[in-house]
Nucleic acid binder design. Structure first.
Lengths: 238, 238
DNA sequence: CGGATGGTTGATAGTCATCAAGATGGGTGG
DNA sequence: CCACCCATCTTGATGACTATCAACCATCCG
């Protein structure tokens, strides 16, 4: 295992990794950044990290568990905005206005790092690389949002579910976890909501994918049996 | 007119305004940034600013005219990603990967400013405020994308068109143009594509809005007759 | 054990896409 | 300057996809 790999798998600095990966800082730079990151206490399932309207102070990186962000309109309807897995960063949309625009809630007992934003601006003034990393992180989020835009605007229900599963697979894989067998941290309702579908439709498509031997699903446990076909269904370029 | 207003309406530094507004830099700081901005020659209608896959070098600010970004899948289908009006910034999604992820094309003869990104990173290292402005700009884009996500995931065709018109109205208004009477720079096909609808549906809803005396539309010229009702239709919070 | 939450399946209805065709309008060439 | 053509826009008829309503099953947990 190389030295940089040891940084990647070390659980103590997930927040650091979330910020710095996949763009490498020097180790001394990483240590400076690392020192600014707070370890927050674990968040219970359904516990909220922040709520809509609350003053923005920090970004949060998921160390373990999973988080969803959502907001509720005046009629009480929920709109799921995103799911965050270990190594991913929450709160980038709140920088501009200085307040969180949605509520972040733990889907299961989770562990998080808090990264005060003023520390980032201060540090990125000194560490040139960190500033560029931040630009890239924000830019990446924009690009991913645009892919979701395509999904919601053009794809059928089946394509949406396939894309969703494929996307999760890639994210787990990127974190050195199995790309084919994993546990969905969110309930079907959340998936449906996120993808702009009804729960029933989502459920039906899960069933259909199993009949086609593309997927094996037992509740939240899923196994992708035919990765190429799923990819094809999702209309991935790769 | 205050000095800062004179900066706002000055046409020579729209690129500067796109970057710096609505967060004020000092005038001396603005001048430093301004010096780095290139004025590109006008772009003819249907002329492309950059294309998918091209190496990312610069952000572009619209000075006059209008630009759309879109990409085409392997089957040749177009997906419109966004529309850019005077004062708005194009290319933020390309920072991460170093290449443009979509094609930008002028909807009408347009004038643009080119802002080399390496100049921004260099300058924002010196000018602390500029760095924060960049974070905010990127963050704002993320937040706006999330609103589009809600639109595409949850809203009906009527709500989408209403939201779209309301949004344009706000953007024109923010640039000191009429919030009620303006010219749509894009064709119906583009609007439909952007909103995840069929052209025919879009056309029908334009007709319906006129029957309800909410809108007056003559081709691309539109006049919002009942702003409150349009807002209500769009389910705006404000 | 019983209620609650989440998941699945079936029947029906509604919104919107699709197909088709006509209307409008701007631009170009004769 | 007019006529023609192509792109765009509009309107109508039909059908498909998916939401909705309803019922049932499974699982978890106090």
């Amino acid at each position: 295992m190389s030295q940089s790999d040891s940084h990647i798998v070390s659980c103590s600095n997930c927040g650091l990794n979330a910020i710095c990966l996949p763009y490498s800082l020097s180790h001394s730079e990483m240590d400076i950044v690392d020192a600014k990151i707070k370890r927050t206490k674990p968040l219970q399932k359904n516990g909220s990290l922040f709520e809509t309207g609350q003053t923005f102070t920090s970004l949060f990186a998921v160390r373990a568990g999973a988080v969803k962000t959502y907001n509720t309109d005046n009629k009480g309807n929920e709109q799921v905005i995103g799911f965050y897995l270990p190594g991913e960063l929450i709160g980038l949309d709140a920088i501009e206005s200085g307040q969180y625009h949605n509520t972040a809630k733990a889907l299961e007992t989770s562990s998080l790092c808090e990264i005060p934003f003023d520390q980032i601006t201060e540090l990125s003034q000194k560490i040139s690389n960190l500033q560029i990393h931040m630009y890239r992180l924000l830019s990446k989020e924009i690009r991913e949002d645009q892919e979701l835009q395509l999904l919601l605007g053009k794809k059928t229900a089946e394509e949406r579910i396939a894309s969703f599963l494929f996307n999760l697979s890639q994210r787990y894989s990127a974190r050195h976890l199995s790309a084919t067998t994993f546990r969905l941290p969110m309930v079907r309702t959340d998936i449906a909501n996120y993808l702009g579908l009804a729960v029933e439709t989502t459920s039906r498509i899960f069933t259909r994918l199993q009949q086609q031997n593309i997927l094996k699903a037992d509740g939240k446990e899923v196994e992708i049996l035919d990765h190429p076909k799923l990819c094809q269904m999702a209309h991935c370029e790769n």
